[in-house]
Amino acid sequence: MAEKPQISSNTTSANFSSLPVILLLGLFSLPLLVMYAYLFVDTISDTEVGSLIPNEFTLRHWSFLWETKTGKPNIWLVTLNTFIFASCITGVILTVSSMAGYVLSRLNVPARGFFLAGVMVLHAFPSVTLIIAIFIVLQWIGLYNSLIGVILVKAAVELPLGIWLMKGFYDTVPWEIEMAGTVDGASRFTVWRRLVLPQIKPAVMALGLFSFLTGWSEFIMPQVLAPGAKVQVLSVYLASLIIDDNNFDFGTFKAVGVFYVVPVLILYVFFQKHLMNIYGGGTKG
């Protein structure tokens, strides 16, 4: 993540030597690299206080994987919760924004301009400022300390961005395709589902990944709205480790951190091409 993506690495037409650039970037990236290296090394070794060189290999810090710590929920339950949390958010965001974006892009709905502006304002609103109000509302309707509640809230907060992104991508789909679809006899829904949606598949992929990653890394909402042991997610679990003054264990904290970031890294490795799409804004069919 620390490295810059190489722009058009397949075209070797640079008219200058790239070696100095690489050296310079390498030099500046070195501290980050050392940080990541130590993050990993520290999880599988013990180091004497004040020393930089580890003196023994140990798997003790990873023991949270096979034994539940006292006072803490089972790590696998927490991981499952995080998966459910991130996946449901992704599902809700994709479903709602792909439909709402289409409506805002194509259909002549009343108050369309107002709606677009309103969605934008919502996006500009820091969600933390709403958290107490949301807390009260959730408690009122009985969704406090439940995954459903926090999923709905998080998805709602992320929706404006998704709707706007989808609208932008729909705007690039030519009208003629829709006209052709309707004169071919397809209903408006079929046109959307079978003809228009496939055109913006790269954008849907990108938004899906983006939503999953936001859900995976979300901390403040689960912390406030669903802190209970049964519904805990990884970020909350991680935080609970560091504020636990009685059993302070830096090694375990780092190990959980690595464990937490691995799925993200895997996603990046496989899907970074799609993720780039969201910033590039172009649909390559």
Partner: peptide, 20 residues
């Protein structure tokens, strides 16, 4: 009648083929 029920065939200037 909506265009779905008119039974017309249209060739557009850009052809409007479905790329996928």
């Amino acid at each position: 009648l909506p265009s779905q029920e008119r039974n017309v065939g249209v060739v557009f200037q850009s052809y409007a083929l479905y790329p996928h």
